[in-house]
Amino acid sequence: MALAPFEIEGRRFGSRLLLGTGGFTSHELLARALEQSGSELCTVAMRRLDPQARGSIIDVINEAGVEVLPNTAGCYTARDAILTAQLAREALQTDWIKLEVIGDDRTLLPDAVELLSAAEALIADGFVVLPYTSDDPVLARRLEDAGCAAVMPLGSPIGSGMGIRNTYNISIIVEQAGVPVVLDAGVGTASDAALAIELGCDGVLCASAISRAHDPPAMARAIALAVEAGALARSAGRIPRRRYAEASSPQEGMPVWTPTS
């Protein structure tokens, strides 16, 4: 049975892969990775205008025909995240926001208290909020109850490439969620992305795994294929895990060899 189409807040996406644009060494490389990823939604951060900057990332994204999802990366308080989201809405004319409120600069793990508080305020202000959250099923439920349009649990810390450290928690989040679940952070390579979808996530967001790979466009393609493979495998229905072997060849009809003298 094919998986339901990937939709967030009534918007349908042909690809389950969201691309984070951080870490690409040039706009040209980003453009090639965007194309290879097949992604229809990519994140950007909001920073002070640099009058010396050459070229706009928005032009690159528009040219690729991809929608933009601003984030609140770098914010440590609800107050900063709310102001950043409002600035992003003004600059980019979108009320969608990937909400990040970081609690610690070494792990970049979310600050649960500030995150929920920012989500509530932004939803009240009319935003479509997609929160980057820890792999905590209770927090994911609280964010959904607050009105978030999706929940985006981490597999492991941002940029760590450690994959999905707690598959049980991700499965629980998926089981209980009434909104799309997008695995955000931790993907290191294609198999991590396939696993996320096999576990039941609706989508995967990748930045560093692609942008910091030796060949970013090739990794973008690999992860896009892995996401597709994961979706196909999930709809195909995997076999149960068993502790002991189960032969696939018939048990009957074995010939009996008569030893020669």
Binding site: G22, F24, A45
Partner: peptide
């Protein structure tokens, strides 16, 4: 944006001008 033209920048004001950059 609609208020940029009509808003004077007074003594001591603090302005932040931001744009989208690569990130996330």
């Amino acid at each position: 944006r609609a208020q940029w033209q009509s808003t004077a920048v007074d003594e001591g004001a603090s302005l932040e001008l931001v744009v989208a950059v690569q990130g996330g």
